[in-house]
Amino acid sequence: MKTELRSAPVRPGAASGTRPRPRVPSRFVPVLATFALFLATFGAGSLRYEGFASGQVVANLFIDNTFLIVLAVGMTFVILTGGIDLSVGSVVALSTMVTASGLQAGWPVPVVILAVLALGSVFGLLMGLVIHYFDIQPFIVTLAGMFLARGLCFVIDVESISIKNETFRDLATGIIELPGGVSITYGVVVALLVVAVAVYVLHQTRFGRTVYAVGGSESSAMLMGLSTARVKVGVYAISGFCSALGGLLFALYMLSGYGLHAVGMELQAIAAVVVGGTLLTGGAGYVLGSVIGVLMLGTIQTIISFEGTLSSWWTMIVVGVLLLVFIVMQRAILRRQARH
């Protein structure tokens, strides 16, 4: 495709107004595809099962996946820069462990929450520093982080610790009534808040735009004088923070801390992000896409539970196949772009 170039300079600011509106820009295609797929899946579910298309089923999609939404948001930051964070599932487990043992030890709830969030952020920050300053592949560093966090869980306790703190339980069971007889938990509000903040940061701040720039071309971003180091380290700190917050939400959901919580959740988060249209090579994607990706995974799970005869492992298979389809699609798009 070739853009027409006019020789005569145009009035300032008129450029955007005078041209015909382009069709859907290609960068939105993957997200829209996911959204369409989500609607189709959900629609198919509604046609097939009675009571599927209720407001509460939609609300439950959020309620059952608050932690995954938050994780996917953090993961989106990391993947947008072209990195990956394998430690998130383990950090979730560690956070539930710290929460449960902290509460057991009688710490006040706000202190526990702050401690967990700080722990997660510092954990992510350290990984980011190692990745950037020692130039070691994110894959291997976060793999070490994954081992470490998982192992630290068991250092705290090998067994599961249930959470009996009243305040925490109230937070967990608290419900917000929405019109239409639909109710959601506080966790949903937190998750949506995180999404909103992430959208703001990614699109309205210099940090966020630099995240995209680094993912597009790190060397270019550096030559453009952007603070790539801050961004490359920062995204891991953000992911660590999101993992810790996800861990808190998971603790609310499970009301226990356990070293074997959230095994493989990093894979779910990565899958959600990729299915949500974010390029694994970085530079393109949207937080909202990742949210849709999570909802997509949730819908599949809901359908499988509605189906009854289908077993839960179908979820993994379907998710894997979806992942494959999106990866191959991305590859095809990249190849076509390269041919331009």
């Binding site: 190692v130 560093v141 070490a144 081992f147 470490l148 998982r150 192992g151 630290l152 869980c153 068991f154």
Partner: peptide
Amino acid sequence: APEITLVFKALVVI
């Protein structure tokens, strides 16, 4: 506890 092996593995990787 055998699960703590993970911590040592992590340290070795690092």
